[in-house]
């Protein structure tokens, strides 16, 4: 079955999810994984969808044209076979909280420390909070440590960065309790 990645973003208002999923339902599409949230004043939807027969994205694009006219931006991509399969990520999951006075490079510097060590980021959220005069940047990262790596290792790398960037960083294990 062919899978597609669908991204929709536009000024937030009531009814966006209903309009988007209405179109998908009419077409006979399935929604597999999805994540939707408000970012700034924009509602953004990211969905992996599939259709039992549809081989190319033309029909989808045509069906979503009406949404674009209503001010939503729609992006569509056909996934290569197997692109919908979630990799089996093994390893300790850790949460890294980074916060401090807003300055350029917070995301990049933290991500570089992780990327250079082949640590896979599986979730990342950032938000600018606080007063306009003194904005505070908050970032939450979920990452899967590679074999043999410990939360203490990450803490150590982050301590160096903490001093360099003058931000607060804490690291903790959030590996789910298997019950």
């Amino acid at each position: 079955m062919r899978h597609f990645a669908l991204t929709i973003i536009g000024r937030d208002r009531a009814g966006i999810v209903s309009e988007v999923t209405g179109i998908l339902y009419q077409l006979g599409c399935n929604i597999a994984d999805s994540s939707c949230s408000i970012l700034g004043g924009q509602f953004s939807m990211i969905l992996i969808i599939s259709h039992p027969e549809m081989q190319n994205q033309t029909t989808l694009s045509e069906a979503f044209a009406v949404l674009e006219q209503s001010g939503l931006s729609v992006f569509l991509r056909t996934l290569k076979p197997g692109g919908e399969e979630r990799p089996d990520l093994q390893g300790e999951i850790c949460m890294i909280s980074v916060y401090g006075a807003d300055k350029p490079g917070i995301v990049y510097r933290v991500a570089r420390e992780l990327g250079d060590r082949q640590i896979n980021i599986t979730d990342l959220n950032t938000k600018l909070i606080g007063e306009k005069e003194a904005p505070v940047y908050v970032m939450m990262i979920e990452a899967i440590l590679t074999a043999g790596m410990t939360v203490e290792d990450v803490e150590q790398w982050m301590t160096a960065l903490k001093n360099e960037m003058n931000v607060d960083i804490s690291v903790r294990s959030i590996t789910p309790l298997e019950l």
Partner: peptide, 13 residues
């Protein structure tokens, strides 16, 4: 607040 998984609901926490 804890993140839980369950043998009867695989692949989700």
């Amino acid at each position: 607040l804890v993140r839980e998984g369950c043998m009867s609901v695989p692949d989700y926490t």
